[in-house]
Design a protein around this nucleic acid. Structure first.
Lengths: 205, 205
DNA sequence: ATTCTATGTTAAAAGCAAAAACATGAGGCA
DNA sequence: TGCCTCATGTTTTTGCTTTTAACATAGAAT
């Protein structure tokens, strides 16, 4: 194999790819710009032609993550239609699936400490993902009597919180906080109980 | 005031204190051993007389955190006795209160990437905190008919997950993921709905 | 009083982020 | 065809970090 030409061709994507791998492997703290550059076959300084710096590289990985995340959630939502309940439960499963399939993205998004308001682009990608979740929650909550219906944004915040909590505490093997249950079961049962509490599914196991 | 004597006196605690402050301020990534040393009025190398290195310093902060956390949860649990429900809800509130009052500890515990099995001591402190939560959940779940009662460990995992999710997503101002609701309300309502789903509180707002 | 040891300092090696100065080569244009 | 230009990489440098080794000091023990 001939050594790479002077110009890489698509260094930007290669760097994001390398960053995602390294972030997933060594955590947001262990990740270094230099190592990502090396893995892309390039000197550290070259990174600055495509990103403002280390943080910006992580931020772009997160942006890509939110975009994929939004797509997946949207697709899951559609796949459950026309049943509001099926659509809702599909988004729940998609959440966990995303965290499992795209660990680098997930970490960049939620554990790297970057602000969602870092750039307008990022904020918009977050807002879009949020909107899908809230739409699924809103659809479903139409089935609740209006007087005892929580705001859809609260509903979706609850579900997002539980999903995120399950991922952070029990789905990541590294901290080793082993639960006796597979994360999928944990989340599904938790959401099930919650929905029962809203009267959205009948009270039988 | 005369400059500090050659021997600090209680450098170890001073370093943990400084670390907690800096971690809360700049996140686990921004935190540096050197800065903690400077803040304690000592050279970086002095740190190595009391800790194995940067990670170990963070780990000890986390250990201290889990100990305080366990104490607070225990106290909250006792404060609600003899009502299992009151005790349970008190632990929920205590969780959020801890995250708010001890941000440095919380971050060291849950966001710094240290493994809970790093040392036996740490693992034990985590286990103890876990045990309090599980006891509260177990007490409460006695009030559920045995055939439709989830395992106490699953019950407590659900609550822990939602609590942690609320803290991470909505209680930390830095990521700027503003929810329209105060985290306390969000968590309290979420737990309320969940408990209703288990039939532990009657279905009225 | 003298020695031992815990606890500090200085000094130095190795790695990283970031910026400045320099190099290369691909595409537009005569 | 041949030159210019500019996007894209490389070297080099600065200042920070972690970590280790060698040295210094003072409180405690004998």
């Amino acid at each position: 194999m001939p050594k790479r030409a002077y110009h890489h061709g698509n260094l930007k994507s290669a760097l994001i790819e390398a960053a995602l791998q390294l972030i997933a492997l060594k955590g947001p703290t262990g990740f270094t710009l230099s190592e990502a550059a090396k893995q892309a076959g390039v000197t550290p300084a070259a990174v600055y032609r495509h990103f403002e710096g280390r943080e910006d590289l992580i931020a772009e990985a997160a942006l890509q993550g939110y975009t994929i995340f939004g797509d997946l959630m949207e697709h899951a939502y559609q796949s459950g239609q026309p049943s509001a309940l099926a659509a809702f439960e599909a988004t729940g499963r998609a959440y966990l699936a995303f965290a499992r399939k795209f660990p680098g993205h997930y970490i960049a998004m939620f554990e790297s400490g970057i602000s969602v308001n870092r750039t307008p682009e990022l904020a918009q990608a977050v807002a879009r993902a949020n909107a899908v979740l809230e739409k699924a929650a809103s659809d479903l909550s139409q089935h609740i009597p209006e007087d005892k219906r929580p705001p859809a944004s609260m509903f979706s915040a609850h579900i997002w919180a539980m999903s995120h909590g399950v991922v952070e505490l029990f789905a990541r093997n590294s901290p080793g906080r082993a639960s006796p249950f597979p994360p999928e079961d944990l989340l599904e049962s938790g959401i099930g109980i919650y929905l029962r509490g809203l009267g959205l599914i009948p009270p039988d196991s």
